[in-house]
């Protein structure tokens, strides 16, 4: 029979090798498929770090289970195992490591959140109005309105969100930001797009039958192109007709 200590060493060695290999493999992956904003970049690094840290945790349990399933089978032996009720040192280590992990993750997450939220200042503002089932964008600088979202590249954009009827959620996957549009209150979010291009936007909160198709297009362009585009938009043309009802009529 293998002595208990040797089992531990063998399993620990397997675990260490698998963890290192796994962590190295994961560390190189870009997880968020399209990254077109500063915020999405922060989220991607958080994602990668969490993924790297999960590998040893995952491997610990998996190696423990697999090793036991192979080596500790009873194989018809009816005898009981050793009467071990616990192990003070091991329990303390387990608790200590999990607390340390939690505090580390929390600190990193909180720092990331502060970084994403950033200062409450912006170079450009867009007002978003959501309704069943369409998005409307207004640009206060010129009063222009549109059904597409146009923002400048490399500048901090303040997005102010409202809803006329039910809860929607403003989401541009490539920006890594998501913010509910809540009737009765105004929500906001800041984003700095880093790569010019066209990106899909979606409603992320169930808002009824049309939820599936409640999409919009986001165009990120340089300031000059954006200005030209804004000039072409007639002020208030899109928003001039009152939003279709779906909202409270009883008030």
């Amino acid at each position: 029979m293998t002595p208990p200590r040797r089992h531990l060493w063998i399993a620990a060695a397997i675990w260490a090798v698998l963890s290192i290999v796994g962590a190295v493999l994961v560390a190189g992956i870009q997880i968020i498929p399209v990254i077109a904003s500063r915020e999405a970049g922060i989220e991607n690094s958080a994602f990668v770090l969490l993924a790297v840290l999960s590998v040893p945790v995952l491997m610990f349990v998996v190696v423990g289970l697999a090793y036991s399933a192979i080596w500790f089978r009873a194989n018809g032996d009816e005898a009981d195992g050793p009467p071990i009720h616990g192990h003070r040192g091991f329990q303390a280590a387990w608790l200590g490591i999990s607390f340390a992990l939690v505090i580390g993750l929390f600190a990193y997450g909180a720092a990331g959140l502060v970084d994403i939220r950033g200062a409450q200042t912006a170079d450009f503002e867009v007002q978003v109005s959501a309704e069943q089932w369409a998005w409307h964008f207004t640009y206060p600088s010129t009063g222009a309105t549109s059904k597409e979202l146009h923002i400048p590249v490399g500048q901090r954009v303040h997005i102010v969100i409202n809803s006329d009827d039910v809860i929607h959620s403003f989401w541009v996957p490539a920006f890594g930001i998501k913010q509910d549009a809540v009737p009765g209150r105004t929500t906001e979010i800041y984003v700095t797009a880093t790569v010019a291009g066209t990106y899909p936007g979606l409603c992320a909160e169930l808002c009824g039958f049309g939820h599936t198709n409640m999409r919009f297009t986001t165009v990120v362009s340089n300031r000059a192109a954006l200005k030209a585009w804004l000039r072409k938009q007639k002020p208030g043309s899109e928003g001039s007709q009152p939003p279709p009802s779906g909202s409270e009529s009883a008030s």
């Binding site: 349990v61 036991s68 399933a69 009873a74 192990h87 329990q91 387990w94 608790l95 929390f106 997450g109």
Partner: peptide
């Protein structure tokens, strides 16, 4: 965020208990 991550500590103890029992057992 802190309390949510904190709850993984007691949840982790469930794994500790299960793995600790399985380790060196006579598994059927």
């Amino acid at each position: 965020m802190f309390t949510t991550e904190l709850i993984s500590v007691p949840t982790g103890i469930v794994f500790l208990s299960a793995l600790g029992t399985i380790w060196m057992g006579r598994l059927h």
